[in-house]
Write a protein that binds this DNA or RNA. Structure first.
Length: 165
DNA sequence: CCGACTTTTCTTGAAATCCC
DNA sequence: GGGATTTCAAGAAAAGTCGG
């Protein structure tokens, strides 16, 4: 039986702390697990390529993430040269799109999901390329001119399929 | 099905860090 | 400095996997 709020009120601060500890620890574990789960989703294809049909442990997911990051860092360095604005933008767009698709796949009702996916798959010039950046600086990649974004979209598979590996 | 082994989850004490 | 909060680590228990 869960203690009532009244009963909790009667506890000393120390006892309240003792009761809260397992809850906080559980939340912490949940944070860890959900991040590992997100990593797993993000690296899905990589897993499929390297270890098809094998069960994934948390340690496997973390190892794979580390090796993927190392690999992609080396790749980025090798690719050399500063990125153009529109390259930066289209990569950011693809990234966001990938995230959205993943989220919708897991959570959205199918009708909404289909409409949104359809919307996103139209050329970014019509949907995503920002005409003007609001004053607040964003951590996301810098926006490129709409024209350039369209050209980039023509070169790249768009919906959730941009994978650097 | 059963037992051995592995992985995950939970609990808890201790250490580290934060904030007044 | 000291109390509150957060993080880490270790051990126990639960759940899952696998070979015989």
């Amino acid at each position: 039986m869960a203690p009532s709020t009244v009963a909790v009120e009667l506890l000393s601060p120390k006892e309240k702390n003792r009761l809260r500890k397992p809850v906080v620890e559980k939340m912490r574990r949940d944070r860890i697990n959900s991040s590992i789960e997100q990593l797993k989703l993000l690296l899905e294809q990589e897993f499929a390529r390297h270890q098809p049909n094998s069960k994934l442990e948390k340690a496997d997911i973390l190892e794979m993430a580390v090796s993927y990051l190392k690999h992609s860092k080396a790749f980025a360095a090798a690719a050399a040269g500063p990125k153009s604005l529109h390259q930066d933008y289209s990569e950011g767009y693809s990234w966001c799109l990938q995230e959205a698709v993943q989220f919708l796949t897991l959570h959205a009702a199918s009708d909404t999901q289909m409409k949104l996916l359809y919307h996103f798959q139209r050329p970014p010039a019509a949907t995503a390329a920002p005409a003007k950046e609001p004053k607040a600086p964003s951590p996301a990649p810098a926006p490129a001119p709409a024209k350039a974004a369209t050209a980039a979209a023509a070169r790249q598979p768009v919906c959730g399929l941009w994978r650097p590996w």
